[in-house]
């Protein structure tokens, strides 16, 4: 399993990186953690003539809260998210997500930016970012622009990121009090892509009513799927078992799975329903102050 030949570029500034991408055109690929790209190159499913390694760019590796947002630098490794006390304590849904991506060695290299920019609906962060209502910041020849998560994923391995742009930051609105989220992944074995996975976030008011909900589904459609009807069914209502069950059913209806080695369409829909309920129960418990 040997990759094809390529020219290797390692810019040290974002401007330089973007200029390289502009000049190299379609024959270039951005190398971030490389944990999806390099295997594809070894199978010669990807044969870029140029690799632009962005790991030399300074200042793209951070996890911090500022101005009402949690911002995560695109080069932040999954392992850092997995370890981060801020993430564990305030954004356990992101910890849930990073913790179940591939395996420890892959998590040491794989980046959150790469996980999103790859545009693979089987990846785990996309659904979580959908549930969290995130934005991604991309940098191109004309500077930065921000793309809402619902506008970012266009299809399998296709995103709104242009060939001459680099994803630099993920921005997540700091959730109000009494919010909670959870990501539950069901996989054939540890580290596999999900049969299906569900990211759920809820915000409760003082009476326990749900005032805000986000539900994102992994690997059951051409992009991460937002289960909109399920979200709407929850908003304005208490998170009773019945209401959660209804949301599970609606999420299952919203999913668009295709039968494959991981399971039939029918089975995946059933899994989405079960996982949605479990994720909502866990999100609710966390919103109520539980773990």
């Amino acid at each position: 399993m040997i990759p094809g030949t390529f020219e290797y570029h390692k810019p040290s500034t974002l401007d330089e990186a973007v200029a390289l991408l502009a000049s190299l055109g379609d024959d270039a690929k951005v190398l971030s953690g490389g944990q999806s790209l390099i295997p594809m190159m070894k199978f010669r499913l990807a044969e870029p003539a140029n690799l632009v390694d962005i790991n030399g760019l300074e200042g793209l590796d951070y996890i911090r809260e500022a101005d009402g947002y949690l911002t995560i630098g695109a080069l932040t490794r999954e392992a850092e998210l997995d370890r981060s006390d801020l993430i564990k304590s305030k954004y356990p849904i992101i910890h849930d997500t990073a913790h179940v991506i591939a395996d420890p060695q892959v998590r040491n290299l794989a980046t959150i930016g790469g996980n999103l920019a790859h545009g693979d609906p089987a990846n785990d962060h996309p659904a979580t970012m959908v549930a969290l209502g995130a934005e991604v910041v991309v940098f191109g020849p004309n500077g930065s622009r921000t793309i809402g998560i619902d506008d970012f994923f266009l299809g399998p391995l296709a995103t709104a990121l242009k060939a001459n742009e680099i994803l630099t930051e993920i921005r997540i609105p700091v959730p109000p009090a009494n919010s909670g989220g959870a990501y539950i992944k069901f996989e054939r074995k540890v580290g596999d892509f999900a049969i299906a996975a569900v990211a759920a976030t809820v915000t409760l008011d003082g009476s326990g009513k749900c005032v805000k909900a986000g539900i994102g589904l992994t690997n059951v459609g051409p992009t991460p799927v937002r289960a909109k009807a399920a979200e709407e069914a929850l908003i304005g209502n208490p998170l009773t078992d019945d209401n959660i069950a209804t949301a599970g059913r609606l999420a299952s209806e919203a999913s668009q799975p295709v039968g494959d080695q991981r399971g039939s369409e029918e089975y995946k829909r059933a899994v989405v329903e079960v996982l949605t309920k479990r994720a909502l129960h866990k999100a609710k418990a966390r919103a109520e102050g539980g773990k």
């Binding site: 074995k189 580290g191 892509f193 080695q261």
Partner: peptide, 16 residues
């Protein structure tokens, strides 16, 4: 053949 890597051929890890 379906698959040709340990992605598809599911060998147990210490977790399973």
């Amino acid at each position: 053949i379906y698959g040709g890597s340990f992605m598809e051929y599911l060998m147990p890890t210490a977790m399973e």
